[in-house]
Amino acid sequence: MTDLSQYPEELHEILEIINESSTSERHELLLDYSDRFQGVPEHIATRPYPESHRVVECESDVYVFTEKADNGGINFYIAVENPQGVSSRALSAILSESFNGASLETIERIPETLVFELFGRNVSMGKGAGMMGIIRLLKHFARQTYQGDK
């Protein structure tokens, strides 16, 4: 059983559900998130997305963008260009729904190992590293956005 105290509050509910779910229920929940995935609005960026925003570890052709939120926190947007990148879309939707507008401090506390808590230990090392790269780049741009506003 995962010790949820290490995670930001925003993730507790979904991790509690996942911890109590069977594999098929977990997949169903993650697919729900994947279906709710929203890309990058045109006022943030348009295709072709800049290489500097690409998650190099991820084969799903993922790009991450951030902006300062009205509440002083950070908004972020994630593009998943590979149509077969279902898991990356699910992770991106979970991150967006849990953390959009969150403070830099909260975003910094998102653990990269969240990937394995969500997708299970059977996720391949390559797939896992790709999705951990999404979290890493999100933190990187969140820091840049925060520092740019200081």
Binding site: S24, H27, L31, G85, V86, S87, V123
Partner: peptide, 9 residues
């Protein structure tokens, strides 16, 4: 597959 969700999707 490699992607664990792809079949379910």
């Amino acid at each position: 597959n490699e992607d664990p969700l792809l079949y379910s999707s």
